[in-house]
């Protein structure tokens, strides 16, 4: 079983991660909090390579929710990058941006969503949208590459124009399903 089969990344020719990076820059986002996901690997590399971006790798995604409330208090605009499983780690901490009317855009790469191989990804993957919405988060999703820029742009605008947590779900169809070499 090779590593590529274990860690599905977007096709090397797919440029939607670069479009997301361009949108972050266009919105003046300077603080990026993340727990790595293979689906975000290219975007994370772009952020790390940009000296104008402060990138914080978290031990758990809920730290990013609290951290970015602090960023906002200090006048900086941030974004939280994570995999769908990380959404479950954020639920109670989302009380803070809701209570404090803090903009909090999240970009979530989905697992357990479309052609999933790993049964452990299904429970949280299936619960991402309802749990986020139950915690007052506006959710939009993209399942084809051409929708990614508009959805990410909309979610960032909704967050900073209307002061609340928002999430762009990037469907697993964009990223590919892990097969563990079984295909």
């Amino acid at each position: 079983m090779d590593r590529d089969a274990l860690e599905m990344r977007p096709d090397a020719a797919a440029d939607w991660p670069d479009r997301i990076f361009d949108i972050l820059k266009a919105h003046g986002i300077t603080h990026v909090a993340l727990v790595p996901d293979a689906g975000h690997a290219r975007l994370i590399r772009r952020c790390l390579a940009d000296p104008a971006m402060t990138v914080v790798t978290l031990t758990t995604e809920e730290e990013g929710v609290a951290m970015l409330v602090g960023s906002w208090l200090g006048g900086a605009k941030g974004v939280l990058l994570m995999q769908s499983s990380g959404v479950g780690n954020c639920i109670n901490m989302l009380s803070l941006p809701v209570l404090h009317r803090a903009p909090l855009p999240m970009i979530v790469t989905m697992r357990g969503d479309f052609g999933e191989f790993n049964p452990a990804q299904i429970p949280m993957g299936n619960a991402v949208q309802p749990t986020l919405e139950a915690m007052g988060t506006l959710v939009r999703r993209a399942d084809v590459p051409q929708d990614v820029p508009a959805v990410v742009d909309a979610v960032i605008r909704l967050a900073f124009n209307t002061y609340r947590p928002t999430a762009a779900l990037l469907g697993q169809r964009l990223i590919g399903a892990k097969t563990f070499g079984k295909d």
């Binding site: 603080h31 909090a33 402060t54 914080v56 978290l58 730290e63 609290a66 951290m67 970015l68 409330v69 602090g70 960023s71 906002w72 208090l73 200090g74 006048g75 900086a76 941030g78 803070l96």
Partner: peptide, 11 residues
Amino acid sequence: AVLGLGLALAQ
């Protein structure tokens, strides 16, 4: 503590 980190990095 991590909210403080976000604030400290922004200011």
